[in-house]
Write a protein that binds this DNA or RNA. Structure first.
Lengths: 230, 230
DNA sequence: CATTTCCGAAACTGATCAGTACCGCATATA
DNA sequence: TATATGCGGTACTGATCAGTTTCGGAAATG
């Protein structure tokens, strides 16, 4: 990921070799500063200081501030969800809830903070926008759509639910809460999205909710934590 | 709205009076530039040029760039929804759809563009964040919660739907689509949120959708465009 | 019509920051 | 151990921009 915009780097025959361990450290520092101050507030000196590196070292590896940031953002992608280890609990709710881990929440929060610092620039820098979407939006949407499609195949939810749209609901609510409302996205909030929006929108009801006033609540396969409406 | 941060302005006994028509023109120019370039990209010279005013004229009215922007954002609030003329069609879907007017879509799109230019700063400037939320998030959420509560009172939707949460869904999806995906929020998209997320989450189904595979679709008061599940 | 004050324009000041150049030291090769 | 090179640090350059000052002209008052 980093290599793509790295400044040439022809290996010398003699003398000291480029210290490759500096790259990830500088990229991490970039993400930290980005999350704290945003793109415009971030200076190369801040990044260098954070990484305990010299400014020149940064410019020896990346041609410009813009390319450094694009690389750093692209870097976040790999540190994301492992698609080979997705939960498969047998229920949509189970799968969604299984994704709520402290690490995942924390990681998402940091990514959204980075995103906040880039939003303004993204409208004018398609390359950056693509990198940010691929790193932050893409993976989460993909996971949700996998879970939803599974639930359809399983017959748990109707086949006509708008998977594409519903896959975005979680991320949209988290984004909105962080960027617009300035409130934290914690476990409780994610649960409320699952039980208050996504599952109901699929015709299911969340775990700990009272049955609807009039509806005849037909008990379903009775797996832990959901009932089907209709 | 503008007056609160305006620089003193003691009326003289003699000579030319302050041209009050310049204020709204400068504020409008500010919003335009803000939407196009974001807070950091915006310069006072740009605003002055756009308003065909001198830079000094701007500083004669606002003490700093920050205060100008806060005023401009606060200004957007008043140009919003008229709460005395909210639609009341008798159905939740009818009310929600009645809010989709070309002007409303356009207005929302512009506000989101302005918001995009402020997001990064909002995390570090609570005053600005408050102004932005009051102008952009607040009114829309309020409208949705009014519609939802009405629908509950009417018995159209269950009383246990999470009104607070669902009121944010529309705005969250629009924000996400604009800021993160860089796609336009058009009538079709708003309709898909209504029919694909909000109504289903309330146990209703949108107008032009096939009935669910297994559920017994009980026909309800049979107003145009909805059926109740359960 | 004289006076006062605002206007737009443009020049100026000081701070900040991207990007460059250079230094002396550390380190890996031969 | 001699040599070539990357390292962190610092000083520099040039551009940009917030905010100030100044100026000639235009308007409103009396």
């Amino acid at each position: 990921m980093a290599a793509m915009t790295l400044v040439d780097a022809t290996t010398p025959k003699l003398g000291r070799k480029r210290d490759l361990t500096r790259d990830p450290e500088i990229l991490d520092a970039t993400l930290e500063v980005l999350a704290e101050t945003g793109y415009d507030g971030m200076t190369i000196d801040m990044v260098a200081a954070r990484a305990k590196a010299g400014k020149a070292t940064v410019y020896r590896r990346w041609a410009s501030k813009g390319e450094l940031v694009i690389d750093a953002v692209a870097c976040m992608k790999s540190a994301d969800i492992d698609f080979n280890k997705l939960p498969d609990t047998g229920t949509l709710r189970g799968d969604l809830v299984a994704m709520i881990k402290p690490h995942s929440i924390e990681d998402g929060a940091k990514k959204l903070k980075v995103m906040a610092g880039l939003v303004s620039l993204m409208t004018r820098q398609p390359e950056l926008a693509d990198a940010a979407r691929a790193a932050i939006v893409g993976p989460r949407v993909k996971v949700n759509s996998i879970f939803l499609r599974r639930a359809i195949e399983r017959g748990e939810i109707p086949a006509d639910v708008d998977v594409e749209l519903l896959s975005h609901v979680g991320g949209a609510m988290a984004t909105h809460r962080t960027l617009m409302l300035g409130l934290p996205v914690d476990r409780e909030f994610v649960l409320s999205i699952i039980d208050g929006v996504i599952l109901p929108a699929c015709g299911l009801r969340g775990a700990a909710t009272a049955p609807p006033t009039k509806a005849t609540t037909t008990e379903r396969p009775s797996g832990p934590g959901y009932t089907r409406r209709g």
